[in-house]
Design a protein around this nucleic acid. Sequence first.
DNA 1: ATAATTGCAAACACTTTGCACCTGT
DNA 2: ACAGGTGCAAAGTGTTTGCAATTAT
Lengths: 141, 141
Amino acid sequence: MKKILKYKTTQRENLLNYLKQNKKEHITAEQIIKHFKSIGNPIGKSTVYRYLDSLVCENIIRKYINQERGSACFQYIENNETCTNHYHMKCTKCGDLIHLNCEEISELQNHIFKEHGFELDICKTVLYGTCSKCLKKGDFV
Amino acid sequence: MKKILKYKTTQRENLLNYLKQNKKEHITAEQIIKHFKSIGNPIGKSTVYRYLDSLVCENIIRKYINQERGSACFQYIENNETCTNHYHMKCTKCGDLIHLNCEEISELQNHIFKEHGFELDICKTVLYGTCSKCLKKGDFV
DNA sequence: ATAATTGCAAACACTTTGCACCTGT
DNA sequence: ACAGGTGCAAAGTGTTTGCAATTAT
């Protein structure tokens, strides 16, 4: 379905480096395009989308769909990241992404598999809610 | 931000009934439009989207973003549905939606709140993975 | 040399908006 | 009568695709 990319190009190298440097963030295509435009080194929209697709296929980055806007964001996958007990929680107020390494989640995963026969895909699941910072600011917001 | 709807119209009545009749499903705007066209009772696109928005605001229906396509789907909320310990799991293979009423999840929610200071929003969170039917068909798929 | 890649512009899918006409009260 | 609602068509997002020019090998 997706193309295998054979040549090494500066655009791709830059783009992948950018994702690596922001591995803690969920980056949108728009952010990438703006970033490279702003540093006077623009990369074409189609190139960005095509390369992102291919990186997703190669399992080098992960793709998420933003629950608010329905648009995609991407994140570099660490080599050493097992991804097995690592969930992401996204604050719907401030948009912050929280990385959750937690025993309890693995337990839930086991429970859901054993009792409900459903195999949870941690990589595809994002937990939504309100982060502690925003809770402190006031529930009413 | 959203308009309050004052008059009772046939379009809205029909649309809400349709959602009520399909309360177990996640329905897209497209499905709604097609349905009413097919029964020779079409409702305009804008009317559909506007009414869905307003129903979401009034907490009469819930909106989900499809993780594959990034498009929205909607679901009628039962009056008696507390929504407190009711999660949705969506199979990424067959698209089936599974309703999960489960103690363990409430425990996780408590844990995440106490230990990580994050208030999980169950309504906004969908767990993704593979359902039992698809697992039986073969892991390789 | 030549196969792959780029980037524009045009097409896409889904959703929102402006506006003249229609409907519920 | 008139505020409110409908539905078309047009505009807006975010994403994908066709293609001629460009670049990596």
